[in-house]
């Protein structure tokens, strides 16, 4: 069981801010592939991975990151703070 969170336009394309996903995905990239296969809205959100950033358990990470023991994964566009 994994909490998957979406922010900014990723959240808008997927249509919800968070969901709980039951997955055997070994890495973030595997999780993305699983989600994309589900419904077109995921395909739309994850169409260009270079436009996305990922955080694993609230730490900025990358798409190769393993998911073993992870509780929370978040997808979002590059940050625009300040």
């Amino acid at each position: 069981m994994l909490d998957v969170m979406y922010f900014a336009w990723v959240r808008e394309r997927i249509g919800e801010p968070r969901e709980t996903v039951t997955t055997e995905a070994a890495t973030v990239a595997d999780l993305v592939a699983e989600l994309k296969a589900r419904e077109p809205r995921y395909e739309a959100a994850f169409a260009d991975l270079s436009a996305l950033r990922v955080a694993v358990d609230q730490e900025l990470s990358d798409f190769d990151a393993p998911l073993a023991g992870v509780r929370e994964v978040a997808f979002f566009p590059p940050m625009t703070g300040g």
């Binding site: 922010f7 979002f76 940050m79 625009t80 300040g82």
Partner: peptide, 18 residues
Amino acid sequence: KSRAPFWKKEYGPDGAEW
């Protein structure tokens, strides 16, 4: 600016844009 997880959306005459 680029490592704190904030995202800005601007609302103007032509609608809203990230």
